[in-house]
Design a protein around this nucleic acid. Sequence first.
DNA 1: AAAAATTTCGCAAAGCTTTTCGTAAAAGAT
DNA 2: ATCTTTTACGAAAAGCTTTGCGAAATTTTT
Lengths: 340, 340
Amino acid sequence: MKKITLKDIGKHFGVSISTVSKAVRDSHEISTELKLKIQKYAKENNYKPNKVALSLLNKSTKTIGVVIPNILNYFFIQVLYGIEKIANEKGYNIISCISDESNEKEGKTLEVLDAGTVDGLIMSLTNDSDINKNISYLQEIASSQIPVVLFDRVSDAINCDKVIVDDYESGFKTTEYFINIGCKNIAVITPISNSNIGKLRIDGYKKALHKNGISFDEGMILNIEPKHDLDLEMSFLLNYKKIDALLCLDEITAVKVQSIVKERGYSVPGDISIIGFTNGQLSKYVTPAMTMVSQHGKYIGEMASKMLIKRIEEPDSGEPFETKVIKTSLIVRESTKKID
Amino acid sequence: MKKITLKDIGKHFGVSISTVSKAVRDSHEISTELKLKIQKYAKENNYKPNKVALSLLNKSTKTIGVVIPNILNYFFIQVLYGIEKIANEKGYNIISCISDESNEKEGKTLEVLDAGTVDGLIMSLTNDSDINKNISYLQEIASSQIPVVLFDRVSDAINCDKVIVDDYESGFKTTEYFINIGCKNIAVITPISNSNIGKLRIDGYKKALHKNGISFDEGMILNIEPKHDLDLEMSFLLNYKKIDALLCLDEITAVKVQSIVKERGYSVPGDISIIGFTNGQLSKYVTPAMTMVSQHGKYIGEMASKMLIKRIEEPDSGEPFETKVIKTSLIVRESTKKID
DNA sequence: AAAAATTTCGCAAAGCTTTTCGTAAAAGAT
DNA sequence: ATCTTTTACGAAAAGCTTTGCGAAATTTTT
């Protein structure tokens, strides 16, 4: 049997729809006798108010949209996990969309989500070169349709709540950590050179060098592209100068780089210390276990979820938009020299 | 400005709602002149038909629910990725719910999803001990409300389409692989001993032993629980008998086991060969890179998605329920001895 | 017994869209 | 000029729910 409706129940008892609705909601307007009969029948036939009808009535879907660029990235999964956890606790469902680092898919997703499907939106922008394409559209959604919370990859052009990692600070702190353990020739390997995040981390790196009297050398920054040959690129870098520290801006790169370095006969951390961003599942289990910068993905997701739901449920609070900066922490393992 | 509706546009031009609806849908019933005006205005004000109203009208939400037990498991993420890919191509959104291996949360999720929110359901059951709790409810949903596709962790009690891994066969084949490379004392380490999947893999393992004249020894099966101390348990196992092969029933266990074995001075694969289930992100990067059984998660997701959408769009096809069995493949790396 | 109060239920609107059908006006045909 | 056809729009229903209000029926009060 298909899902039963109020109308069906009404017909069964020869009463009106409103009577049934009130009966199942236990209204005092309905006689106890009739209520009991209706409630029993409703329960037996597994009646549940149709969510779609309720959404239309209440102008609220109890659903939030989440758009992430890449689902096979552990950081984003952790964020998603955090978002789902809080949303679930507060009675919201999440529609998850993967933009696959494509501006086009991101735009399409926004179109769908902007048609009344969700009460709010949590997203992280793609790194796609054509970066400005959807920004104005998203700005319009944020300003007039539904609350939006941006995380990690954000944009100044959009006026909304944001949760970001302290990328500049963590680039700085991590570099100083290298310097403190005695490293002087610190190279950076970045697969995200075109993103704002990557730039901030490198800015922090530069500042730490400067503060410690080490001159910055452009040749120490290795930009890698998905299609390039990391092995070959690493050759150039390792031959370019004597290097004693490598800062990798994501986890997979860190793991691959460590593997390449070891194969070439360097000892880690004896010859070269390595630190990577994103404390995911990989870094713990490779040999040596890697020192990583944890961005606290789950916490970021929880925070974003809370901020969004607050906006949804208190639309006219009048509170100005906020940008929460989550501090990273360094998870020290075996890929870095010990502090003297 | 809030989202604009047909009514708003109608008021602006002094025409009825139906006229506006026809105009934006480019119906021939409306004069060209009026259509042009309305269409222009609609585009300028970013009019989009309200999805919720359409859902109510069409009795179709273009949304499918996905319930997975654990989002931090790479296999499930791969499946989710595959589901999303196909769903997206066919114009569906996905609502993803995490049951967190809890029967209770699974039940709550089903309640929500069974209220007209989704057109169909893809799920993998929890391993919770109280395994039968939601089965009858799910069976009812599958039989009378919306199409359901179960994957990986399925149940015979539910009549629906299924996509499963050939667990028995792969337990068998993997064990024979060990035997072929000269291993005779093969132990199994399973964190999923209470699941049907785990049992099937072990049945396959037993059959392979039997076929090759090796007697089965219960002591060679190590059941591990999340709270137990794997290090200690491994001690017992390694002291129990001289072991030359370890079959681990999930990826994290495989990686941890290899790490423990190495620490105890065994050489991998010299002394002990190791194979793990689920070819995820970890196994490739540890040293030695591990030989793994790939379950083709993404493909399973794609398959499940296709099957479900077909059921949704052809509800009365009358085709009997199907169980697709996806064959695993062995990704041979360095943690197993070479074939002579 | 009549008036007042309470109980118990139904009607209708609102949320937004699509589509069928009806009708007035305009255009065409005879 | 009259009849037929076409054009161009509006009314209404359907999808399902909740809720305020009106009304009939019953009970209580005087």
